[in-house]
């Protein structure tokens, strides 16, 4: 019971995090906390098989899928706070509170008989007991889930498939385009310098320095540049100044 009272508030807090987190990634992490908590709850309630399935399927597969799609769609996107329908948030909160009140009244009025417990049902082992049910009483439903899974796989393939509209760009095409750009604009046809070359730091967000000391913007990956996470040369020169100060005043300022 102690485990329950430690875990339950944590799970409710994490679930509330799902409501209030601005970034979708934070919401996903909160959901992962809730799911692991639920797995422990299953273990507490004599359901070791569901404990394992919860960890493997939910925290392993489903959360991974969620994070994967988040990465595809853009992690940094925050939720818009504009209400399309006026007063919808307030109405939703009121409905939620009403639902919670209704449910707590219902649960409060329930007369609970003494818990039977699963010792008898789990006598041959939880997995064996579940298997006996799955392959006798629920065998039709079990077969239907197989059909459902196949349909889901096919559906996902169809939905995620994209028809190739333009011919594939081969290495030859890339080289031709580079040479054409060199002829037209004078852009260097070779590889761009990797980030951090000759710069103070070799992090990916630091542009490489050209021979004249100016930063080569294109050495920083595109995605970092689009998100504005690249270090500008002002940052770099500030860092360099700071480094020089430290070098000079090492004795006075050891930090």
């Amino acid at each position: 019971m102690t485990t329950f009272w430690v875990l339950a508030p944590l799970m409710v807090l994490a679930a509330l995090g799902l409501l209030f987190a601005k970034k979708a990634v934070h919401a996903a992490l909160c959901l992962a906390v809730v799911m692991i908590g639920l797995a422990v709850m299953y273990a507490l309630q004599d359901a070791p098989f569901l404990f394992a399935v919860q960890i493997i399927v939910y925290t392993g597969a489903i959360m991974m899928l969620f994070l994967f799609v988040l990465m595809l769609i853009g992690v940094d996107r925050t939720d818009s706070l504009v209400e399309t329908i006026k007063g919808q948030r307030l109405a939703a909160a009121v409905v939620g509170v009403l639902f919670a009140v209704t449910m707590s009244v219902a649960v409060g009025q329930v007369v609970v008989s003494s818990t039977v417990g699963l010792e008898e049902a789990n006598a041959d082992g939880n997995v064996e007991g579940l298997a006996a049910l799955l392959f006798t009483r629920y065998v039709v439903a079990f077969e239907f889930t197989a059909a459902l899974m196949i349909t889901a796989v096919l559906g996902a393939m169809v939905l995620a498939h994209r028809e190739r509209l333009s011919p594939r760009r081969t290495q030859i095409d890339v080289q031709r385009q580079r040479m054409r750009e060199y002829a037209e604009t004078g852009r260097h046809p070779g590889n761009p310098p990797t980030p951090g070359v000759f710069a103070r730091h070799n992090g990916v967000d630091v542009p490489a320095l050209l021979p004249d000391g100016s930063p080569a913007e294109e050495s920083v990956p595109d995605s970092l540049r689009k998100r504005g996470q690249e270090r500008t040369d002002v940052d770099i020169s500030a860092a360099q100044r700071r480094a020089k100060e430290i070098e000079r005043g090492d004795e006075e300022d050891p930090s």
Binding site: A47, L50, N126, L133, A152, G155
Partner: peptide, 30 residues
């Protein structure tokens, strides 16, 4: 399931998990 002392509830939870997995796959693809 624990309250009633049989495993039907756990079987139902198992089926919910299966359907949820399928639903997530399709929903995310959409």
């Amino acid at each position: 399931a624990r309250q009633h002392g049989n495993l039907d509830g756990q079987t139902a939870a198992f089926f919910v998990m299966v359907v949820a997995a399928a639903e997530v796959v399709i929903g995310l693809a959409i």
